[in-house]
């Protein structure tokens, strides 16, 4: 027991430093899902959209070497997938859970298909250079907090700005209020002159874009290469974190960081206990997520119209 505690203490700096990049992909997806669900659309296809993002981001970066372009194209590709989900669920009133599940498998299939068609014959797996982290002389060198605050990669900072923008949008703009109204009661929104379908489409497209960015982050920043099914359920964790976050981006951010921390811990523990099959530790982040969700309990108020298609009478 004592040795475990000392290992954990030893790992603390690693965990704190490492949790941000591990949290980033899931936070990107969860932030998008938060906006999505606030408008009343449940997007269970996040996993598929992330998977599409992993391969599209990888391919664009591999071909052009431009990681900014890679992130944007990955986001757009997943946004397109989200648009299909929107057509099915918003315009054609299909069940959101079923459609979302289908989207998951479409993204899963597409990512594998694209990889195999382009690189299937390569003798060794292709790699890209992972995106560089920031280095600001003096600031980054500050002991303890320097690397944490000023040594992340640029995408992390971009995500932070997006997070602040989303927070401001949802709770301090008229459009944000309208969007949340659509999530609570689309009929009320419509009576008040707000177009529910338009808001749901835009929210869904934003959610898809963010899922794609999250997926691309895994290949371009964390790994540098592509392998099948590399999101490993993170899309679903993103959905869960939105529930944990009670539809508030601040809490979603906290949840993502906890997930990131436990993830780093699992990677580290794996090396400390080589005798234990690594699959044992790989369950940790997911178990942690489950505990988080249980802690929130059933008391959270979900958007009242979440996952309900808006069907007008008359």
């Amino acid at each position: 027991m004592n040795s475990l505690v000392s290992i954990l203490l030893l790992l603390l700096p690693t965990v704190v430093l490492g949790m941000v990049p591990r949290a980033a992909p899931i936070f990107a997806a969860a932030l998008g899902e938060d906006v999505d669900q606030s408008a009343g659309t449940l997007n269970l296809g996040v996993e598929g959209m992330m998977l599409l993002g992993t391969i599209i981001g990888f391919v664009i970066d591999f071909e052009t070497g431009d990681f900014v372009l890679a992130f944007i194209v990955a986001g757009l590709a997943s946004a397109l997938l989200a648009l299909f989900h929107g057509i099915a669920t918003i315009s054609l009133k299909a069940d959101q859970v079923t459609s979302g599940t289908a989207i998951w498998f479409i993204g899963w299939g597409l990512s594998g298909f694209i990889y195999s068609s382009l690189f299937g014959k390569a003798s060794s797996p292709p790699v890209v250079k992972t995106i560089p982290t920031l280095y600001i002389p003096h600031l980054t060198d500050i002991p303890y907090i320097g690397k944490f605050l000023f040594g992340q990669d640029p995408v992390v900072y971009a995500l932070l700005i997006t997070f602040l923008a989303v927070q401001y949008f949802l709770f301090h703009t008229k459009a944000g209020l309208n969007l949340r109204t659509v999530g609570e009661d689309p009929l009320v929104a419509e009576i008040m002159g707000v177009n529910p379908d338009l808001y749901r489409y835009l929210a869904l497209i934003f959610g898809g874009f963010m899922a794609g960015v999250g997926g691309a982050y895994i290949t371009l920043s964390l790994v540098g290469s592509f392998y099948f099914d590399m999101t490993a359920g993170m899309g679903f964790i993103a959905v869960a974190l939105v529930y944990f976050g009670k539809w508030n981006p601040v809490r979603v951010l906290i949840g993502s960081l906890v997930f990131g921390a436990v993830y780093v811990l699992y990677l580290a523990l794996e090396t400390y206990f080589p005798a234990t099959p690594y699959q044992f530790f790989s369950m940790f982040p997911y178990i942690a997520t489950m505990i988080l969700i249980i802690l929130v309990g059933a008391r959270a108020h979900a958007p009242a119209a979440l996952a309900l298609p808006y069907i007008k009478e008359g």
Binding site: V188, A189, I191
Partner: peptide, 16 residues
């Protein structure tokens, strides 16, 4: 046609 979890102010501001 009100959103129960919103304040009165917010309810009056929808769609402005």
């Amino acid at each position: 046609s009100l959103i129960p979890v919103f304040t009165v102010k917010e309810n009056l501001s929808i769609g402005l």
